[in-house]
Simulated assay, not measured.
Amino acid sequence: MENHLLYICMVFVLAGMVKGVTGIGLPTVAMALLGLVMPPLQAAAILVVPSLLTNVWQMLERRGLYALWLRLRLMLVGVCAGTLVGGAFLAKGDGRAVLGAALLLYALLGLSSWRWQVRAGQEPWLGPLVGAATGVLTAVTGVFVLPAVPYLQALGLEKEELVQAMGLSFTVSTLALAVMLAGHGAWQPAEAGISFLAQLPALVGLALGTRLRARLEPQLFRRCFFITLLLLGGHLSLASG
């Protein structure tokens, strides 16, 4: 893994920058690029610390966290349960095909004009199902976005509230992933050390992305982001076939 140290640092600078501009994307970009050179399980172990740090930062940027927790707690409990259940699939292949498929689906959703709307009466039963599905995919691929992000976008939250909600969801997903990896002996000293090291380039990228946010056209950047994920997802899917 030491042979890939420079590559890992460059990946987290880029992933942090994407998150700084869009509010999402650090785990997705990191897993997509790290998955090119290592199994997703190993990449997920490296992801833990930088993902946790940047998402806690995003989660605490504004007030109103407790109200969001009350609204989303059933979904977040589902995330934890789904991640623990998804850990049972760790031994079945290296997960690259599933990671590639998840990236392809997320990219296609991001590039489409399809929009989902969740009514208030659906949240008590739909939230836990979405959380459980997100947790299973988190355990298998290390990516936290599906179906959590489309669900959160469908709740009709204000822009800054949505960013905070995603930070809360990703924080819980990261903690659940860390517990699952530790329980399966997948967070070894080497991965833990590189994970702590990776927080530095991730924070540099986050700071750069935050400064770039005001200068870039958000829609154009998001389109380029999803096209890149589409290409990476396709490559991972074909390479694992």
Rank of each mutant, 00 (worst) to 15 (best):
V49A: 09
A45I: 06
L47D: 01
E61L: 15
P40V: 03
L60R: 12
P50Y: 02
Q58Y: 08
P50S: 09
M59K: 01
A45R: 01
A45S: 13
N55C: 09
V56M: 08
M59L: 15
W69F: 15
P50R: 01
G64D: 08
R62S: 15
M59G: 02
L65W: 03
A45V: 06
V48N: 00
R62P: 10
V48Q: 00
Q42G: 10
W57V: 05
S51E: 04
M38K: 06
Y66H: 12
L70W: 11
R62C: 13
R62N: 15
W69K: 03
L65C: 04
E61S: 15
W57Q: 05
N55I: 03
W57R: 08
V48T: 01
L41H: 06
R62A: 15
L65G: 00
V56A: 09
R62F: 15
V48R: 00
L65S: 02
L68F: 07
L47E: 02
L53Q: 00
A43M: 09
L41T: 10
S51R: 00
V56P: 01
I46L: 15
N55Y: 03
P39S: 13
A43P: 05
G64V: 08
L52A: 06
A43W: 01
R62V: 15
L53T: 01
E61G: 14
A45T: 06
P50L: 05
V48H: 00
L60M: 14
A67H: 12
L70A: 12
E61Y: 14
P39F: 13
A43C: 14
P50D: 07
I46W: 01
M38E: 11
R62W: 14
N55R: 04
R62Y: 15
L52S: 03
L70M: 14
L53E: 00
R63L: 11
L53V: 12
L41Q: 11
Y66N: 10
P39G: 12
G64P: 04
A44P: 05
L60D: 06
Q58E: 11
M59W: 03
A45W: 01
A43S: 13
Y66E: 13
M38S: 08
R71K: 14
L65N: 02
S51Q: 01
L53D: 00
L52K: 02
W69V: 11
L41V: 14
W69G: 03
A67I: 03
Y66P: 04
